Simulated assay, not measured.
Amino acid sequence: MAFSYNSFKIESTFNYKLKIMMKFFDVKIFVLACELKNLSAVARELSITPAATSAALKRLEAELNTRLLQRSTRSLTLTKSGSDFLPYALKSLENLDIGKQAILGDKLKGSITLSVPSDLGRNTLLGCLMDFQQHHPDINLKVKLSDKYADFYSQTVDVALRYGEPEDSALVCLPILRNAVRELCASPDYLARCGTPKTPEDLVKHNCLHFTSDDMLSSHWRFFKDTSTISVKVSGDHLSDDGDYLRLLAVKGAGIVYKTCLDVREDITAGRLVSLLPDYRKEKSPLNMVVAHRKSYDGNLAVLKEFLVETLKPSEINAS
Rank of each mutant, 00 (worst) to 15 (best):
F3G: 05
K9W: 07
K9V: 14
S12V: 06
S12P: 00
N15F: 09
V27G: 00
F30K: 02
L32G: 01
E35L: 09
E35Y: 07
L36G: 02
K37H: 09
S40T: 12
V42Y: 01
T49H: 06
P50L: 08
A55R: 10
A62H: 12
R71F: 07
S75M: 07
L76M: 08
D84G: 01
F85H: 02
F85I: 10
Y88F: 15
A89D: 03
I98T: 05
I103L: 15
L104M: 10
V116T: 07
R122Q: 12
N123M: 09
T124C: 09
L129I: 10
Q133E: 13
Q134D: 13
Q134V: 14
Q134R: 14
Q134L: 15
D138H: 14
A150L: 06
V157N: 01
R162G: 05
Y163E: 04
C173L: 03
C173H: 05
N179S: 12
V181R: 04
S187F: 02
D189Q: 13
L191M: 09
P200K: 05
V204I: 15
H210P: 00
F211H: 11
F211L: 11
S213P: 00
D215N: 15
M216G: 00
S218N: 14
H220R: 12
I230S: 08
V232G: 03
G236S: 11
D242P: 04
G243P: 01
D244Q: 11
L246Q: 04
L248A: 07
K252R: 15
I256Q: 02
C261Q: 12
R265M: 13
E266C: 03
T269K: 15
A270P: 00
R272H: 14
V274K: 09
D279P: 01
E283T: 13
L287M: 09
M289H: 04
M289Y: 05
A292K: 12
D298F: 08
N300Y: 06
A302K: 02
A302H: 02
A302E: 01
E306G: 01
L308T: 09
E310A: 14
T311P: 00
K313V: 00
P314Y: 11
E316H: 02
